[in-house]
Nucleic acid binder design. Structure first.
Length: 509
RNA sequence: GCCGUGUUGGUCAACCGGUUAAGACGCCUCCCUUUCACGGAGGAAUAACGGGUUCGAUUCCCGUACAUGGUACCA
């Protein structure tokens, strides 16, 4: 018997890949790697009314950015393909027919209008949304209420029909969830779900069971929003393939927004991204900013997602993918949903920027700076600058304001901070400083600072009063690394030019 | 409405019958730094409510409240 661990992620190409989705993939991925199992991606593209062009490729791009790629073989071919539900259409029909033959499902010929009428007719204040269940089943047009001949005729006439599961009466359906433990439902309160739609496509309920069986899935991870429909899936397993072959279920807690459910729709209103990467809906042309473009490192992104609902029981919070694979444990996953906190998310990014060598993300930063029309100079110089300012950057995009003055003269000087205390003595000091620096040999931060202080002492000025103006001359404002380190990096000529230029501005009235 | 799931500071959370109830983010104070950060030291802030069970409940059980998910020919 095949005991190999095999998990699958099943995205629906209806839009961007949001936080909860990425975390589900992450947990799938960690579990698979941990058990040296397979990680399969199956595409749920059977809802043609919602299908969005390009969404499938987008999902793979996101997974690639996060470093959570499935094996090549499980996308293109492999042992269990095809992986798009639309390409597996004939399979589902066969199993649906089998259920009918065994008396576990039936044809339903009710039109959408008739269903609507049923819901309106049976609607009461106590039951605002009547279901197609055991109590109304006998009042509808289906292969249970109709005579075999009538059914045969309707089928022969190509009448549109769906196949629905026939929920048994008075049964308790229970199963063990890896996160929630024993969960049970009364069959009387679950409705006769549609298994096969009128267009011949399966619903999620049928597809997930058939695919999990055929793909030999051993563990199924999905969001908690699926817990309510678990009884349908349990029954399908029982009727079709046997409960012994059923995968183990894990229903992951939901990720919530500041006030309630984190919705894909209005990501903009939160003030932080809800998608892994920029997503432009081709139908509405609406662009939703992603974590990648916001300036997040993939390492930080998956890290913060992993610990939103899981921890290893220690105080560790920063985990690399490798560490997560090693330490992840499904029984330490929380039962309750967690609110997403963007401040903490930024903290994770900050930590990863400090932790990783600049070579790891310099290409990304280079692209950000070049998009702002900065000439970043030599590779060696660029790396020195990044190393100098990295601890000041929370997002990758912060590198622009934290380092632009290394590549170009400050666009504006914070003159207001200097002017009130500016005087001839200071002017003289800097003039002398220029003369000294012009002849300077051994251009490095330490000797530059010594020289600066010596001249200050000779002029009976306090270095403290001169540092602030000097900084503003070089960077334009009161921020950035140590001034002498900046001077060392931008070089003699540039330093002198900036002092000269600023002197003119400071002395002007 | 009905069904499911959940409930430790503002947020993420540890402790799964006996603790001064960890830690992190954020916030505040101080130190370091003649800038901004980094770093360091402190501080404020928590077990939804009511019943049980128990020598003892944050921890187990039952109610209530609240939150969240489902209740579609969507996933």
């Amino acid at each position: 018997m095949d005991k190999k661990v095999r998990v699958r992620f099943a995205p629906s190409p209806t839009g961007g890949l949001h936080l909860g989705g990425v975390r589900t993939v992450l947990y799938n991925y960690l579990f698979a790697k941990q058990h040296k199992g397979d990680f399969i991606v199956r595409i749920e593209d059977t809802d043609q009314t919602r299908f969005v062009e390009g969404a499938e490729q987008y999902i793979f791009d996101c997974l690639k950015w996060c470093g959570l790629q499935p094996d090549e073989s499980t996308i293109n071919g492999g042992d269990f393909g095809p992986y798009r539900q639309s390409e597996r259409k004939p399979l589902y029909h066969q199993y649906a027919e089998q259920l009918i033959n065994d008396g576990f499902a039936y044809y339903a010929f009710d039109t959408p209008e008739e269903l609507e009428k049923m819901r309106a007719d049976f609607k009461t204040p106590e039951n605002p949304s009547p279901q197609y269940d055991g109590s109304v089943r006998m009042k509808m047009k289906n292969s249970i209420t109709l005579s075999p001949d009538e059914v045969k005729k309707l089928l022969a006439d190509d009448t549109r029909y769906v196949i629905r599961i026939k929920m048994p009466a008075n049964e308790t359906i229970s199963f063990t969830d890896m996160i929630h433990g024993e969960v049970s439902f009364e069959s009387n309160v679950v409705d006769d779900k549609v298994l096969l739609k009128a267009d011949g496509m399966p619903t999620y309920h049928l597809a997930v069971v058939v695919d999990d069986y055929l793909m030999k899935i051993s563990h199924a991870f999905r969001g908690e929003e699926w817990l309510s429909s678990a009884p349908v899936h349990i029954l399908l397993w029982k009727y079709l393939f046997g409960l012994d072959n059923m995968p183990q279920w894990a229903h992951l807690p939901l990720i919530m927004g500041p006030n309630g459910k984190l919705s894909k729709r209005d990501g903009a209103k939160y003030g932080f991204p809800v998608f892994a990467m920029n997503w432009k809906d081709p139908k509405t042309n609406e662009l939703t900013e992603g974590f990648k473009e916001k300036g997040f490192l993939p390492e930080a992104f998956i890290n913060l997602l992993a610990v939103l609902g899981w921890n290893d029981g220690t105080e560790q919070e920063i985990f690399s993918l490798e560490e997560m694979i090693e330490k992840f444990s499904i029984d330490k996953v929380h039962k309750a949903g967690a609110k997403f906190d963007f401040e903490k998310a930024k903290w994770f990014n900050h930590e990863w920027i400090k932790k990783l060598p600049v070579t790891h993300y310099k290409q990304t930063v280079k692209e950000i700076l070049e998009s702002k029309e900065l000439d970043i100079g030599s590779d060696e110089y660029f790396e020195k600058v990044l190393t100098q300012v990295k601890e000041r950057c929370t997002l990758l995009t912060d590198f622009y304001e934290q380092s632009s003055f290394f590549f170009t003269k400050p666009a504006s000087l914070d003159i207001d901070s200097v002017k009130p205390k500016w005087n001839d003595a200071k002017n003289l000091f800097f003039t002398e400083l220029i003369r000294n620096y012009q002849l300077f040999i051994g251009w490095n931060a330490a000797s530059l600072e010594n020289n600066f202080k010596e001249i200050a002492a000779a002029n009976q000025l306090k270095p403290g009063e001169l540092m602030a103006p000097f900084r503003i001359m070089l960077v334009g404002g009161k921020f950035g690394p140590g001034v002498f380190h900046i001077a060392e990096l931008i070089g003699k000529q540039e330093t002198i030019e900036r002092i000269e230029k600023a002197l003119v501005a400071f002395s002007a009235n």
